[in-house]
Amino acid sequence: MIEAAVVVTGVTKTFPVPFKRRSVLAVRDLSLRVDAGQVYGLLGPNGSGKSTTLKIILGLVAPTRGKAEIFARDSTEVASREAVGFLPENPYFPKYLTGAETLRFYGKLCGLSSRALTKKIQELLELVGLTSAGDRRLGGYSKGMLQRIGLAQALVNEPRLVVLDEPTAGVDPVGSREIRDLILDLKKRGITVLLSSHLLDQVQEVCDRVGILANGELVSEGAVNELLAVENQTEVVFEAGSEELTRQIEALINTAGGRLIDCRKSRKTLERLFLDVTLK
């Protein structure tokens, strides 16, 4: 059996509302499992409990009921975070530090030696494309740059599990494509990735498995390919065809007992267009 990177069992979380009797239910009886080496996406509308779930997994928030484990270690143990990297949503980092100093600080917290860090910092800055900005203060970083330094910070201890809360929020399409490539690269290196997002097509591109949360409940869960496959339909895309060819194909489908549902000109996505015109 494949090792589990994250196991969440029956987690419920309620937040008390100050000065009121009632409380907010953020997550209800949630169970999920992320296999090692997978890219897992948590989806859901605003306020559906994605961030809360991730914080419970990281031991930043204690569940009201149930428990969470990382590589078979309870999340409440500090040691469970040994092999984890985390990028919170909209992160801020100390403004007065430079990019390299930030990475050094977080590396020290992971118990890395100064010597090992000097090399590691260069690698990471290169990985996230901030080599030239490494000695500038974060106060002058753009939102996308902050997101990338946050990503580098999450990778400083060579984690086996990387948890990303909305990694592409506020990042332009080029940047989010780079982040997507980075996630795929992590996956190739055998690192488990657990991310939350509400940008569905991006999730569709990178994730092996998704779980969809609504009002704190897991309403759908499964492998992306299975969830999205439409039973009994096939798409055909071809180039340099004529109207005549299309008619022939339609006739062929009809004689074979099938039914043509839709026939249209292929369009590129807006993202593709954006990338084509901005990357010149």
Binding site: L58, G59, V78, F86, P91, Y92, F93, Y106, G111
Partner: peptide
């Protein structure tokens, strides 16, 4: 407020 505490405590820091 700056969420720096999250990034620090998400490392193995008691």
């Amino acid at each position: 407020e700056d969420r720096i505490v999250y990034t620090i405590l998400a490392k193995p820091v008691p």
